[in-house]
Amino acid sequence: MSPVLYYFLSLTGTNILMCWSLYLPYRVGQLHFLTVACMLASAYFSGYAARELSWPFALILIFGVLIGALICLIPSFTIGDAPCFTVVIVGLTVIFIFKTAVENIPALGGTIGFFGIPEVKGLLPLTYLLLAGAGVLIYKIDHSRLGRAASLVFVDKATAAATGVDIKRLGMFFQIIAGGLAGLAGTLYAFLIGSLFPEFFSLGIIGTFMCMLFVGGHTTMWGIIASIPILEGMQLFLPSSVASWRQVIYALTLIAIVLMLPGGLITKRMLINLTAKMFNRSDTGKASGTIDKCIK
């Protein structure tokens, strides 16, 4: 496999995981950038445990996920139902603190970076296998009682609370799952790429994830799968002089999409229409059709 393709597939895989970890808390209206801090912590933990302590990969993977979930668990006791903007700034602050810590700890490579994380054979197929597993998990959550409750919270918190939804516990649940996903993404990223730089975990990467989420469409879990390969692939095919402006390209794309297509490229209504067409004769199709009329 050519290095470019390997790099593309690796980043696509971890980015989908990260964007799902942002998508899940956004179901209850929270932009949970703390997951980027989870990714950072798990990635550095994995690198250190593999290179210095020679832990086996499977154990590191489990610990990576747990670390991610734990980092989200602790603050979720107070920000489980906090307003979106407070959650955003808590996330950014923790990322900054973690970054400063990494930059000041020589054992983690400081500002120079952390290199030489041992390779794991057959990791790329395993990554996509885990990705599929994560997808099933999110699909199950989306189509459960919790997913429906989340949709209600997103639209109107007061009504949701009046209907008996425990907003705080719901938010906590989504935040912790998101942390676990981000921990998984961090561990996989560390092993797939083999080196870590604190500069990677900056506002730029958050902007990139946000662009992927909102361009794809934040109303369903499938939008991300459409947007990430395009946005990730774009920088491979563009000439390097243009690709160095990719941050600006992402940002302008995001602004344009938010202004022109408020729901992103793929929206929930589109999917409902699609299923209605595919199963036109069956009962589910009719049901979806009626739902669609109701939405309209």
Binding site: C84, F85, M210, A251, L254, I255, V258
Partner: peptide, 23 residues
Amino acid sequence: RHGLDINVSFVVSMSMTLVITDI
């Protein structure tokens, strides 16, 4: 497009920061 939603305005203004910083 979105009503007075401060969260969306954050998403847009954060994109602006990326543009300004990159310039």
